[in-house]
Amino acid sequence: MTDAPPILDVRDLVKHVPVRGGGLLRRTAGSLRTVDGVSLELRRGETLGLVGESGCGKSSLARLLTAVDRPTSGEIRLFGERLDQLRGSRLRAARRHIKLVFQDPYASLDPRMTVEAIVREPFVIHRDVAPRADHRRLVGELLELVGLNPDHARRYPHQFSGGQRQRIAIARALALRPEILVCDEPVSALDVSVQAQIVNLFSSLQKELGIAYVFIAHDLSVVEHIADRVAVMYLGRVVEQGTVEEVYDNPRHPYTGALLSAVPDPVPDPARRAARVGLQGDVPSPLDPPSGCRFRTRCPRAADECAAHEPPLHAPAAEPGHAAACHFPLQPAARGTAEA
């Protein structure tokens, strides 16, 4: 990537959610470490893919990045400004630069508002962006930009299909011309053919408007298609990070390897079907993550050292951009499948 400073710079981000126990006293039973020390960078116009299984903290991270939730500690710098410390009108102004697209287009649109009212809401909240007289025209332009017929602006969300609803949500997110879109599983609720339409929309919007994406998905093939760089999360931590080619062709963390091998290829092959060895067990509870390396309980390579010391995110000299948090990283030849 270029040497320009990142437009979004996240350092050691932590979010702990206290979990209350039952009973009258409602004592704090512990804390859910949804995001536990994440550092990321995003440059102008690039797409950072964020993959991981449910409970790995990717959605919590999305809410932190868009200032829906406040981090417990760590910093988020948006154009050099500490987003996590902003309040009031300065926070509101900063929100224009980074917008969130939700997973479920059935839940993210107010069912009682027309499409026009939904897409216009950003202008109503940020009054200085555009004079009231221009709102209708701007809404029409936005709908057109995302491939919807502006004549349908008076309809209600329930009159649209899932894919069209996601387009409405994207139009709303684009209204304030943000430089960054954080997309939290934006296509996983959609059918395959619709999913492809939305993925293409994201690509063309990036080309047209130069938006940078933080693209969160559990579907590795979608991320491979759309992302420039990828970060793999496991239990609140980034365990591997690098360019798409580096991570997909040559995973260094055993978890990435297992994740990639678990993705079913759309090509029938009876021989491979029998041979595939997946990852055993479930993700441990983020209430009580394992000591040392968090992946060790499911890792075929785990050794004593893994329980004792948490491996740092480390990039070898040969691949300075490709970091993995593992004491015993995979070697180039050995992909995840050969383990176990």
Partner: peptide, 25 residues
């Protein structure tokens, strides 16, 4: 619900969220 979160994320204050989204729904 997500649409209330979406309004918060847009920068809407509690009064607007209550009057426009939460109470009507």
């Amino acid at each position: 619900l997500d649409y209330v979160t979406a309004a918060r994320e847009l920068g809407a204050g509690p009064v607007r969220i209550l009057l426009r989204h939460a109470i009507p729904n």
